[in-house]
Design a protein around this nucleic acid. Structure first.
Lengths: 197, 197
DNA sequence: TCCTTACTTTACACCGTGTCAATTGACGTT
DNA sequence: AACGTCAATTGACACGGTGTAAAGTAAGGA
């Protein structure tokens, strides 16, 4: 599964990414990717064992380029909790459109492929952990609304900021990125923060 | 597309529904449905022109049995707005698990089929309209939080109560139906209602 | 010269959807 | 009793997309 020129491998990953982005993660066949990369369809299989494997590798590649893990894990939790929350929404809301196509493809692959499912869950867990940290700030400042505990609030915030909700609002209802971000801030602050009138 | 015994047709619809429910809308082949209905695979095509058509017909059938349209449109808006909101969440939160499998299948079919997409949008529009009515009650009582206007609030409430969010919370995070309902009430009240402290 | 590496070409198997044609068996009609 | 019709059956096949297998080729290094 890993013979073949590393440069070609990289070209495949880049074209996969590009095509997924362009077509919103749908109608991207292996042969399309091969054509875009200027190689034969079979050559793809010299580098990746299956469609799902290619997808997962592309996610890792994009991740590496965009440093999403580092940015999420290294997110500052020193400021006041409200600011941390706003920063998180700001970051995530601007990030979603960049990765939507690929995420969508992975989401679809997950239905049938076990590795794709694992890769997806892995990504989602990181975002969920991010929310836990944000809400922990609120807890430490005593500003989490009394209806919530840490775990439930993290689940809820994570689900509400999920990609499918973004899809509904941005693609179906026409919310722009800045509208999404500012309204999501409103939702989450009202929902989570004590004395938010 | 509509020759064939109406009783057989009904049996197909019922088995489709049943299988979709049982398998969460995934891995349900036409041949599975045929086997369950005790007929040949080809006989399905005597009644329905395609998989998507069968799916859409099943949705209509379930709709008819469950009277979802009537229940949504006839929902009482006489009580105080907060009660209307709670009733809506209560109804919808209990309804989702009943239709999840079928909804999931329709959601998948929508990616490739135009009719399935239309059927889905149609269902979603009804739910969105429901939210508009709920929020209109809040507006009339002057209790909608000042950050919102009617349309944006309806979009947001609709997206937050979407099936994919339920999927995340109920199936991934293990929220029970009653937990989902009560926490969703909390979210929506805090998010939308003025002076909700 | 020979071997290896990376890729090509051609061909085919598999799966699920959808199509087609010939056949059967149970009914009503006249 | 012969006829037609309707609903379903059987069996075969095409298509699209994924994945496998095998033989061939062109370039570079020992």
């Amino acid at each position: 599964m890993s013979s073949g020129d590393p440069e070609t491998r990289k070209r495949i990953l880049e074209k996969t990414w590009h095509l997924m982005e362009k077509r919103g993660g749908q109608n991207v066949k292996i042969s399309d990717i091969a054509r875009a990369a200027g190689i034969s369809r079979q050559a793809i299989y010299l580098h990746f064992g299956s469609r799902a494997e290619l997808l997962v590798a592309t996610v890792r590649y994009v991740d590496e380029v965009k440093q999403i893990n580092e940015r999420l894990k290294g997110m500052s939790t020193v400021a006041n909790a409200l600011q941390v929350l706003e920063n998180y929404v700001e970051f995530w809301g601007n990030y979603i459109p960049e990765i939507y196509g690929l995420a969508k493809a992975l989401l679809t692959a997950r239905e049938t492929d076990q590795d794709a499912a694992a890769a997806w869950n892995d990504r989602m867990e990181v975002v969920h952990q991010g929310w836990r940290k944000v809400i922990d700030c609120l807890v430490r400042e005593g500003r989490l609304a009394p209806e919530w505990d840490l775990d439930q609030a993290a689940d809820a915030a994570w689900a509400i900021t999920s990609i499918s909700v973004w899809e509904n609002l941005a693609l179906e209802r026409g919310w722009s990125t800045s509208e999404y971000v500012s309204r999501m801030k409103t939702i989450l602050k009202r929902m989570l923060v004590k004395n938010q009138l």
